[in-house]
C-alpha cells in the first residue's frame, strides 16, 4: 500500500504540491557528485519524448486528465524544446517513437525512471533524507551531506544500443488547472478564514542518465513551474525552467539517428 502511494512520481508530486500550498516554491537542480563529461571525445545526448500531462483539478483534489489540453501541451513543449537555444547549443538529438522490442526496452526504462525520480524527489528535493545516504564526517560541526547516488543500473546499456546515445534526457511535466468549483472554494476559504487553497498543480522535472552506468547525473525539479504549456509562449518558458542547471556539454555531440 505504501509503495502504491509513492510509486508514481506524479502522484507523489501532486500530493505534496497540493499540501505545499502557499509554502515557498520547492525547486532544485542537483548533479551527481563528481560528475563531469568525458573530455576530448564527442558525446551523444538523446532526448526521449517528454511525458506531458494536463488536466483539471476538482475541489476535492481529484485530478481529471484532459486529452485535448495534453495533446496541445505535448506538441507545444516538443516544439519549444526543438527550438530552445539551450537545446540547440547542446546539439541534442530528439528521439521518436520506437516499435517492437525496442519500444519494450524504452517503456521499461521510462517506468523505472519514474520510480527513481519519485524517490529522488522525496529524498533529495523535498529533503526527506535517508540516513544511509549520509556522508560520514569526522568533523562534528560539518554540515550534513547526503550522497546523490540513485541509478537505473547498468542495464541502461540496452538503451544505449537502441538509441546510440551516451546520455539520455527525460522530461516530465504535469499541470492541473483548478475548475470552477475549486476557484469558488479558493475564494470562500480566503474570504472566511484567510486560508490558502492552491488553485492548481504546475510541476515538472528533468533528468539526464549516463547510459553506460544508469547513474542519474543531473536532476531538476520545480513544484511551481511557470508558463502555460497549452500555448506556445508558455511552453517556451516551461522548457527554459526545465533546463535550469542543465550541465552543458563541453564538446559538440554528433548527430544520432533513433
Amino acid at each position: 500500500m505504501i509503495r502504491n502511494l509513492l510509486r508514481a512520481v506524479s502522484g507523489a508530486i501532486v500530493a505534496v504540491c497540493l499540501i505545499a500550498g502557499a509554502a515557498p516554491a520547492v525547486a532544485g537542480s542537483v548533479q551527481r557528485d563528481g560528475f563531469a563529461y568525458p573530455q576530448g571525445q564527442p558525446i551523444k545526448i538523446v532526448v526521449f519524448r517528454p511525458d506531458v500531462r494536463v488536466g483539471s483539478l476538482r475541489v476535492g483534489g481529484l485530478d481529471e486528465p484532459n486529452a485535448d489540453w495534453t495533446a496541445a501541451a505535448r506538441t507545444n513543449i516538443q516544439t519549444a524544446m526543438e527550438s530552445s537555444p539551450q537545446m540547440r547549443e547542446a546539439n541534442l538529438t530528439f528521439l521518436g517513437e520506437f516499435e517492437g522490442e525496442q519500444a519494450d526496452v524504452v517503456n521499461e526504462n521510462r517506468g523505472l525512471f519514474e520510480a527513481v525520480a519519485g524517490a529522488m524527489f522525496q529524498h533529495v528535493t523535498m529533503g526527506d533524507r535517508l540516513p544511509t545516504k549520509l556522508v560520514a564526517s569526522t568533523d562534528p560541526n560539518a554540515k550534513k551531506q547526503y550522497r546523490i547516488d540513485w541509478s537505473l543500473g547498468a542495464q541502461t546499456d540496452r538503451l544505449r544500443e537502441v538509441t546510440g546515445g551516451d546520455y539520455a534526457l527525460f522530461f516530465f511535466t504535469h499541470d492541473s488547472y483548478g475548475d470552477a468549483g475549486r476557484k469558488v472554494a479558493q475564494l470562500l476559504m480566503a474570504g472566511l478564514f484567510g486560508a490558502y487553497v492552491p488553485a492548481g498543480v504546475h510541476i515538472g522535472y528533468a533528468a539526464m542518465i549516463d547510459l553506460k552506468t544508469g547513474d542519474v547525473v543531473w536532476f531538476n525539479t520545480d513544484l511551481a513551474m511557470g508558463g502555460d504549456p497549452r500555448d506556445a509562449e508558455g511552453a517556451q518558458k516551461r522548457v527554459s525552467q526545465l533546463l535550469a542547471g542543465f550541465p552543458k556539454p563541453p564538446v559538440q555531440p554528433t548527430a544520432v539517428q533513433p
Binding site: L5, V59, G60, G61, L188, M189, V197
Partner: peptide, 11 residues
C-alpha cells in the same frame, strides 16, 4: 470544503 480538501501527507 475543508473536509473535502486532500489530506496533508506529512513528510
Amino acid at each position: 470544503v475543508l473536509a473535502s480538501l486532500p489530506a496533508a501527507p506529512a513528510l
